[in-house]
Amino acid sequence: MVGVNRWRKRGDRDMTNSSLVIKNLHVSVSGKPILKGINLEILPGEVHVVMGPNGSGKSTLSYALMGHPEYEVTEGEVTLDGKDMLALPSWQRAQAGLFLCLQHPIEVPGVTLESVLTESARAAGRETSTIKKQMLEEAESIGFEEKLLERPMNVDLSGGEKKRNETLQLGVLSARYAVLDEIDSGLDVDALAAVSQRIQGFTHDQNLGVLAITHFSRLLEVLEPDKIHILNDGCIQLTGGPELVNQLEEEGYQVLLGN
């Protein structure tokens, strides 16, 4: 497959000098500080998992990285291959290779996925005539019904279909770093397997770097994490290997964080 070769080649290059770096990130929402100094470095192909209790700031991290206007970065840096992400509008962050899988994908009446992905490719100076074909291929690989592609974005899709749709977009846009905001929440077993296997495939074949925000360990049965970070009260309070997940399941956040 031509695509695979292309990806391998880019992956090789990425391995040498690419990274997504978050340094001392402080974020406020409506003037209230939510994130109070986050530090993370993600390399191509790595899977980092951020877990934490409700209200710890997990979703804030994902929205701030992508530049949602309601999330105000008050201090810190975010760079992708050394490029300052915080200076860029959301769409340029996406063009630089950052992708956000939303916890609750937005319904956009009257706007088709194909038009959005076509405009994205056009802005990147990429070929637009192959978008539909790529969409169909991605849809097939994650079991997203072809007829649903005709619908306006996320309108009348079930929770599982929305997450498959997000994963499909991740594939077509050939992102380099994906922030997955609770992509597993509300997914049935089949959808979870399809989505997580596809993302695991991206990390393996295309060196996709992943920052997965989740409440549950079941996502990690397929997705192989390199590091687990525990987010609490706006800070990463503990970082460890995959074994941290089991420890967390047994002890809970309170004990693990020594409260």
């Binding site: 530049g67 769409w91 996406a94 939303l102 959005v116 974005m153």
Partner: peptide, 9 residues
């Protein structure tokens, strides 16, 4: 925001 986050100006 959602559409922009897909790389659309």
């Amino acid at each position: 925001f959602y559409i922009e986050s897909r790389g659309v100006p």
